[in-house]
Design a protein around this nucleic acid. Structure first.
Length: 830
RNA sequence: GCCGAAGUGGCGGAAUUGGUAGACGCGCUAGAUUCAGGAUCUAGUGGGAGUUAUUCCCGUGGGAGUUCGAAUCUCCCCUUCGGCACCA
């Protein structure tokens, strides 16, 4: 019988569809398990990264189903975004047409892979039936104070003609097109993610099933700093400059102050002083520098403002500088400078010849102002700090802030690096922001009964990339819902990350178009038990989804605190050591591979070549190896079908057969050891590569046993073989579902293999009778002897001493110590 | 600079708790078989030495240490990758 994978895969997929085996009745689920992979952007074709992502998720989903869980395993499309619009401009295709055609094509591709999705739950985020709810959330979040509008400096990408979130700017460049990001003042809508900064941070502790790497990245991104805000008066002016510091213990070491070139007082402080022109010039120069040029520039530059700040405790006057390294976005845009204990201040002080005053003395060793080469940022005891001298610096932090609070000159303060999430995008292909701007009433939310605000279809695309919406009167011209006067509809659309921040909840009740989320249904399934996706979303998507889940919880839509209980971040698929990309010309097309070898082979290779979290090197030879293995499996069944078919078995039968025949006992032992090993590898570690190699070993042993018993017609023998083969098929069925399903039928089973329960290892059958114990002398291997399981130290030692190669090393020496690891190793120390 | 991960044959990788390093697969070598096949089967395959069926030495990026015993634990160093990057 020929292994015609193309026919087999088509036939099996048709069977699964006809029998609706992956359709889930979520309301009647007794053991819910939600397995989810990150949904794709419908770019046109799936790539190997998708194949890997969805193969991994499919193994988990199918495995859990066989374990008896009711598995929710949906798929959909992250369908808004720039490429659709670019295609429209370039090829004159409407973004909607482009997107839906891509979806149709990619759906076919995914179906060819034989993935166990419940396709009835499919969603596309560009569907008004989807984004309608998102617009509703926006309005409700606005009512709750979680959405606000402000004129803000935004990151603007000229090439993409849109605003980017902080998270989408990488080293001053656009994350998508790598072109220079410039600053612009724009009225924009923001989600108040900072309201959840503390919960997003502390929640990391509870995410036990997330990779530590991702949690670290999230923590760094949130960037919590505990410290104090301290008020410095400006000498001779009725002004106060607030600074933020994490080191209030160094307050007595302040010898100057630095403020950002963007600080509102920067120009004012120099007004009327001799420094006025210099300050102006400095700020101009700084502003004209490109954002990417500012990155990596560590040279400290600055200019004296001509003004002085008054130290809140000593009354000392210290000069105020405008300095290039002070960020306006963080803290207050002004810092108290303590050159002795902050490296940046130290460098600045050296450059401008400013005094360095030591106020923290390290426990061992002395610091001397004259010969310091770098700042001392470590702990120590306070010196030169009035009544606080002699205190440990951690203690001093508390005491000094207490005093400042008492005198009304400062207070404890916690600062986060996390910024609010700007979501306004000046693009067409996104969900419209449901707002109407009225000259009288200001921005007014679209009445809920008028939702969705649908994206108009008939638009002209501007080759520059500018959104057509502001020029489309039919879209923007409207009346104010509050006062009825003529008004203008908001023409910005939402960041596409908004759609992907809650899609996992929508799948659960995708059939219900009367409400956004059915709380009862959603609560049964969230959080997602297992989420699988690429590491590139470690910050953006995952942080936004966590925020959205908390916001939706607080709006009463659901109860979960976190969206994803366990997270598996798969590595990249590489070719020749580099990520596959068109420009490098090292792309391997999944379709080509599936046509050539079948979906099972491609799935098997990609699961076998590396553990999921590691990068995977694509190898054409490796694919052939995987194909050969499936062929071997195929022949193992089909070449022996006459004997295998009638060889139905029961556990009791097998036990009595194996009691008499040692070789068969060994095979059955291997069968049950393999079941145990594969179950553990999948359940505990998701190490499919070792799970597959374990089944390969089993298959190898089946083959060699067959050879040993060549031509045997004995019934008992074939029963043991059949048990082993069936175990191999069941264990492999989540990974190579088509061929195992076909072989299962060929063996005469009426029920589809996907409906079979996962095999259970019989501990008695798996138990070894004898083990190979390694004999070491002084830690060096000198022999191996076979002993019955559970042999005592003495028994093994007696046998070991009889081994010629062991006794050779013991001769004339005194045994000092014998270490015995039961059933593994005996080490004789002489 | 800081944080994190990793470094094992010609290659992908295994060794789950400190206990036979190199499972499984690729590749390679030799032989068999068929040459229509991306074939199949058998044996071998870390390096070195040897009295070549049973042996010894070396070997998990480098160096030290703990231990009867270290790829695994500790310290120092090197390399690669990823993240953050003047965060006060």
């Amino acid at each position: 019988m020929k292994y015609d994978f193309s026919e087999i895969e088509k036939r099996q997929q048709k069977l699964w569809e006809e029998q609706k085996i992956f359709r889930l009745d979520d309301r009647n689920a007794k053991r819910p398990y939600y397995c989810l992979e990150m949904f794709p952007y419908p770019s046109g074709r799936i790539h190997m990264g998708h194949v890997r992502n969805y193969s991994i998720g499919d193994v988990i989903a199918r495995y859990k189903k066989m374990q008896g869980f009711d598995v929710l395993h949906p798929m959909g499309w992250d369908a808004f975004g720039l490429p659709a619009e670019n295609a429209a401009i370039k090829h004159g295709i409407h973004p909607a047409k482009w997107t839906y055609e891509n979806i149709d094509y990619m759906r076919t591709q995914l179906k060819r892979m034989g993935l166990s999705y419940d396709w009835t739950r499919e969603i596309a985020t560009c569907d008004p039936k989807y984004y309608k709810w998102e617009q509703l959330f926006f309005i409700q979040m606005l009512e709750k104070g979680l959405v606000y509008r402000k004129k803000a400096k935004v990151n603007w990408c000229e090439s993409c003609q849109t605003v980017l979130a902080n998270e989408q700017v990488e080293e001053g460049l656009c994350w998508r097109c790598d072109s220079e990001v410039v600053e612009r003042e724009l009225d924009s809508w923001f989600f108040k993610i900072t309201d959840y900064a503390e919960e997003l941070l502390s929640g990391c502790e509870k995410l036990k099933g997330w990779p530590e790497k991702v949690l670290t990245m999230q923590r760094n991104w949130i960037g919590k700093s505990v410290g104090a805000e301290i008020d410095f008066k400006v000498k001779g002016k009725d002004k106060v400059i607030k600074v933020f510091t994490t080191r209030p213990d160094t307050l007595f070491g302040v010898t100057f102050m630095s403020i950002s070139p963007e600080h509102p007082l920067a120009v004012e402080l120099s007004r009327g002083t001799s420094q006025q022109e210099q300050v102006k010039a400095f700020i101009e120069k700084w502003k004209s520098a490109l954002k990417s040029e500012r990155y990596g520039q560590t040279e400290k530059e600055g200019v004296f403002t001509g003004s002085y700040a008054v130290h809140p405790l000593t009354g000392e006057e210290v000069p105020i500088f405008v300095a290039n390294f002070v960020l306006m976005e963080y803290g207050t845009g002004a810092v108290m400078a303590v050159p002795a204990h902050d490296q940046r201040d130290f460098e600045f002080a050296k450059r401008f010849n400013l005094p360095i005053r030591i106020v923290i003395m390290p426990k061992d060793g002395q610091l001397h102002q004259e010969d310091m080469e770098e700042a001392w940022e470590g702990p120590g005891v306070l010196v030169n700090s009035a009544q606080f001298s002699g205190l440990d610096n951690e203690e001093a932090k508390i005491r000094i802030v207490e005093l400042l609070e008492k005198e009304g000159k400062g207070q404890k303060k916690i600062t986060y690096r996390l910024r609010d999430w700007g979501i306004s995008r000046q693009r067409y292909w996104g969900a419209p922001i449901p707002i109407i701007h009225c000259e009288q009433c200001g921005p007014v939310p679209v009445p809920k009964e008028d939702l969705p605000v649908e994206l108009p279809f008939d638009v002209e695309f501007d080759p520059s990339g500018r959104s057509p919406l502001p020029h489309l009167e039919a879209f923007w011209k409207t009346d104010c819902p509050r006062c009825g006067r003529p008004a203008r509809r908001e023409t910005d659309t939402m960041d596409t990350f908004v759609e992907s921040s809650w899609y996992f909840a929508r799948y659960i009740c995708a059939d219900d178009h009367t409400k956004a989320l059915d709380r009862e249904r959603v609560d049964r399934w969230l959080p997602v038990d297992q989420y699988v996706g690429g590491i590139e979303h470690a910050i953006l998507h995952l942080l936004y989804s966590r925020f959205f889940t908390k916001a939706l919880r607080d709006l009463g839509y659901l109860s979960a605190d976190e969206p994803f209980d366990r997270l598996l971040t798969q590595g990249m698929v590489l070719k020749d050591g580099a990520k596959m990309s068109k420009s490098k010309g090292n792309v391997v097309d999944p379709d080509t591979m599936i046509t050539r070898y079948g979906a099972d082979t491609v799935r098997l290779f990609i699961l076998f070549a590396a553990p999921p979290e590691r990068d995977l090197e694509w190898s054409d030879r490796g694919v052939e190896g995987s194909h050969r293995f499936i062929l071997r499996l195929w022949r193992l069944v089909t070449d022996n079908l006459d004997q295998l078919k009638p060889a139905s078995f029961s556990g009791d039968e097998l036990r009595s057969i194996c009691a008499e025949q040692k070789n068969l006992r060994a095979l059955r032992q291997k069968t049950h050891q393999t079941i145990k090993k594969v179950t553990e590898d999948i359940e505990e570690r998701y190490h499919f590569n070792t799970a597959i190699s374990a089944v390969m070993e089993l298959v190898n042993q089946i083959s060699s046993t067959l050879k040993d018993f060549q031509g045997s017609e004995e019934q008992g023998f074939w029963k043991v073989i059949r048990e082993a083969i069936e175990a191999a098929l069941l264990l492999l069925s989540p990974m190579i579902p088509h061929v195992t399903s076909e072989l299962w039928q060929i063996l005469g089973h009426k029920q589809l293999i996907a409906r079979e329960p996962w095999p259970v290892s019989d501990p008695d059958a798996a138990k070894k009778e004898a083990v190979l114990v390694v004999i070491q002398v002084k830690g060096k291997v000198r022999g191996k002897i076979e002993v019955p399981v559970g042999s005592s130290k003495e028994e093994v030692l007696t046998l070991a001493q009889k081994e010629p190669n062991v006794s050779k090393y013991l001769e004339g020496k005194e045994i000092r110590k014998v270490i015995y690891v039961p059933d593994r190793l005996l080490n004789i120390v002489v």
